[in-house]
Amino acid sequence: MNAETILELIYAYTPFACVAALIILGLYCCIVRRNIIKIILGVSVIESGANLFLIAHGYRTGSVAPIYTLSPSDTNPLNYALPIPQALTLTSIVIGVAVAALMLSLAIHIYRKYGTLDVRKITKLKG
């Protein structure tokens, strides 16, 4: 194994390492942090990880955007980036925005009712 292949491997696996890091960071944030806003941020970080995971599968070095009419006419058909993961990621981003908006608006209501955002104190429902 020469230096070039090692470098290529690092290139290939960097996005996935980022994905793992993002997901673990997000989970850590959700579990360890006590402030609801920070937990919601943690969910968003996990979501970014999931989105990056999706999009990383559709990309190849040197590929062009999968828009047929806008690409150069001499583009090799095999050189387009895979469009499906991009469509999936867009959908997932939209869902993520809706989820975050809903959770934040509920957090506002919780703050009004309970006067705190500490999850250890938002435990009226238990037992």
């Binding site: 997901i23 959700c30 609801i36 937990i39 919601i40 969910v43 996990i46 979501e47 990880g49 999931a50 995971f53 999706l54 997932s92 869902i95 989820v99 809903l102 959770m103 509920l106 957090a107 209501h109 919780i110 009712k113 309970y114 938002i122 009226k124 429902l125």
Partner: peptide
């Protein structure tokens, strides 16, 4: 009213994380 926001938020938070793992 009362504690409904708390129930809603907990449900959404768990569903969101469950959903993200399903996506993964």
């Amino acid at each position: 009213e009362g504690d409904s926001a708390e129930g809603g938020l907990k449900y959404m938070l768990l569903s969101a994380i469950g959903g993200l793992f399903v996506l993964i």
